[in-house]
Design a protein around this nucleic acid. Structure first.
Lengths: 182, 182
DNA sequence: GGCTGATTAGTCAAGCCTGAGTATAGCTGG
DNA sequence: CCAGCTATACTCAGGCTTGACTAATCAGCC
């Protein structure tokens, strides 16, 4: 079963945006940065590269536009082949499960290379950072269009799982401290 | 504040392995594939590339070894600078929180491009896949060294969060079906 | 009426990542 | 004894990604 690659999801994203309406590169990047930055990682130059590639592959058509003598605009429009490919990618995305990579794991594996007390201290800092991130997510929930509601929920569910795990980890790292509270 | 990049975590991983004992490239790759494949994504050629880079940066030293006339072995050993860098990376990793990217999000955002019934059907297939993955994780828990216990727990916590979210999503997509239960 | 800084729009060299390929050694069956 | 398979150990061309850069317009303001 072919694994879902990040590459495919990016193509899916670009085709999905173009399915709605034709757009030029900058416009796509603006939209991604403003509406989707919290759930995708796609730098501007990468988007340009991928749009060009989708073009070479026949999934989108490109038309160069120019007003005055500003830099040219490359306007992209999805083709019928692109439409088909979009549906394929979407079905694949909805079907497959690609377990994400958690950056934290490496640190946990090597935690014994630092004194336990320091590890606990560092993890508490991370705990703070996660709490802050959770608050940002809840703010987003009200600021973003309703279609994103489920996605934010998704992130919150995982953030809460992360916090639960981290709490247990911190507690386990330092079990004797419960003796003298305050 | 600098975001933890995947790049840094990979360096951390390689330095962490070399901190334990000197190793040659193939050996490192074997170890990663057998013990850590479930939590890191690092292809063999990438490891060779990064080891070479760590070498150019002075964090590890390389010694070419040869037995008979087999292909040469590049044996890597961590340097004092590498030791320091390792500690820095480890502290950074333990402190920072880098919210992962969830591939599923894109599909959810575009789900309305397919008929709701099909979306539900596809998500149920994914549900199955996640259950299967969860079982694999539980098997790993007994098969892997104890240091990995916390990491597997980490994954299981997130898989369960994913399942909970997906259940709710499927239920919401198809709210009227509860009327005639089998 | 011209200078500053923000916005629009995209390019590019340089670095990162990987599938496919190379090359030797050992083992196994016929 | 040797053809074919697996294991050992990398190498590399080519594709992917991105930070830094270019270059024009516009809005404000002294």
């Amino acid at each position: 079963m072919g694994g879902t690659t990040a590459h495919m999801d990016r193509q899916l994203l670009l085709l999905g945006l173009l399915r709605n309406q034709e757009m030029h590169g900058y416009q796509i990047n603006e939209f991604i940065d403003q509406q989707m930055a919290f759930c995708v990682d796609l730098k501007r130059s990468t988007a340009y590269y991928l749009l060009d590639k989708l073009c070479r592959e026949g999934y989108v058509s490109e038309e160069v536009e120019r007003a005055g003598n500003r830099p040219e605009r490359h306007v992209y429009r999805i083709t019928p082949a692109g439409e088909t490919y979009f549906q394929h990618l979407l079905r694949h995305n909805l079907t497959a499960y690609a377990p994400p990579i958690y950056a934290e794991d490496i640190g946990i594996i090597f935690q014994h290379h630092l004194p336990p007390a320091e590890v606990t201290r560092l993890l508490r800092v991370r705990h703070e950072a996660i709490i802050t991130h959770r608050a940002r997510l809840e703010l987003l929930q009200t600021a973003l269009p309703a279609d994103h509601r489920a996605v934010i929920e998704h992130h919150i569910v995982h953030v809460d799982a992360e916090l639960a795990w981290l709490d247990r980890l911190i507690a386990a790292d330092q079990p004797t401290d419960a003796k003298h509270p305050a």
